[in-house]
Amino acid sequence: MKLVPLADRVVLKQLEAEETTKSGIILTSSAQEKPQEAEIVAVGPGGVIDGKEVKMHVEVGQKVIYSRYAGSEVKLDGQEYIVVRQNDILAIVED
């Protein structure tokens, strides 16, 4: 199956949470903070939303930082995804 977002929505695959701190302390799964960094796996077409033209500024494969409580979590074929609006994406992470 494949997720195809509509309008200004973007499908994100969350990156793995850090299992150790920078000082070497191992974190249990309950103590790990939900990461806000994800990879884009699908992008909607944009279009007219609430009477305004919305152009998509992100592409599949980019790594992004998104708002902590944004979007809807979806599970498909055993994989977890987050569907967010483009304006919930705060930044693109460049190497």
Score class of each variant (00 low, 15 high):
residue 60 V to A: 04
residue 2 K to M: 00
residue 56 M to F: 04
residue 72 S to G: 12
residue 95 D to T: 13
residue 54 V to P: 04
residue 20 T to F: 13
residue 67 S to V: 04
residue 45 P to C: 02
residue 16 E to N: 15
residue 25 I to A: 15
residue 21 T to H: 05
residue 49 I to N: 06
residue 79 Q to E: 15
residue 57 H to P: 01
residue 63 K to F: 11
residue 34 K to F: 02
residue 85 R to A: 11
residue 95 D to M: 07
residue 72 S to C: 08
residue 18 E to Q: 14
residue 10 V to G: 05
residue 7 A to K: 07
residue 71 G to V: 07
residue 59 E to P: 00
residue 72 S to F: 04
residue 36 Q to T: 14
residue 79 Q to Y: 00
residue 58 V to T: 04
residue 6 L to Q: 13
residue 14 Q to D: 05
residue 7 A to V: 08
residue 44 G to F: 04
residue 54 V to W: 06
residue 86 Q to L: 01
residue 94 E to Q: 15
residue 48 V to S: 10
residue 11 V to R: 03
residue 25 I to S: 05
residue 87 N to H: 14
residue 31 A to V: 04
residue 56 M to Y: 06
residue 63 K to V: 12
residue 43 V to Q: 02
residue 11 V to A: 06
residue 12 L to F: 00
residue 84 V to A: 02
residue 67 S to T: 06
residue 69 Y to E: 15
residue 68 R to V: 01
residue 24 G to N: 03
residue 16 E to S: 15
residue 4 V to R: 09
residue 84 V to Y: 02
residue 3 L to W: 02
residue 71 G to T: 01
residue 46 G to F: 03
residue 79 Q to K: 11
residue 87 N to T: 07
residue 60 V to Y: 05
residue 43 V to L: 01
residue 94 E to V: 14
residue 78 G to T: 05
residue 89 I to A: 07
residue 24 G to I: 04
residue 51 G to I: 09
residue 71 G to R: 09
residue 64 V to C: 03
residue 8 D to N: 15
residue 35 P to Q: 08
residue 72 S to L: 12
residue 4 V to E: 09
residue 90 L to T: 12
residue 28 T to M: 00
residue 77 D to T: 10
residue 83 V to F: 00
residue 92 I to P: 07
residue 9 R to N: 12
residue 15 L to S: 08
residue 25 I to K: 15
residue 62 Q to R: 01
residue 87 N to E: 15
residue 42 A to N: 03
residue 28 T to E: 13
residue 62 Q to I: 05
residue 13 K to S: 08
residue 18 E to W: 10
residue 68 R to Q: 08
residue 29 S to L: 11
residue 95 D to H: 15
residue 18 E to Y: 09
residue 43 V to Y: 00
residue 64 V to M: 08
residue 27 L to Y: 02
residue 91 A to G: 13
residue 28 T to F: 06
residue 65 I to W: 10
residue 37 E to S: 10
residue 4 V to I: 14
residue 91 A to Y: 11
residue 51 G to K: 12
residue 61 G to Q: 06
residue 55 K to V: 09
residue 76 L to C: 09
residue 18 E to N: 14
residue 27 L to D: 03
residue 68 R to N: 09
residue 30 S to G: 02
residue 30 S to E: 13
residue 4 V to L: 12
residue 40 I to Y: 08
residue 27 L to T: 07
residue 72 S to Q: 15
residue 11 V to S: 01
residue 92 I to Q: 11
residue 28 T to P: 01
residue 50 D to T: 05
residue 33 E to S: 12
residue 11 V to H: 02
residue 51 G to W: 08
residue 49 I to Q: 06
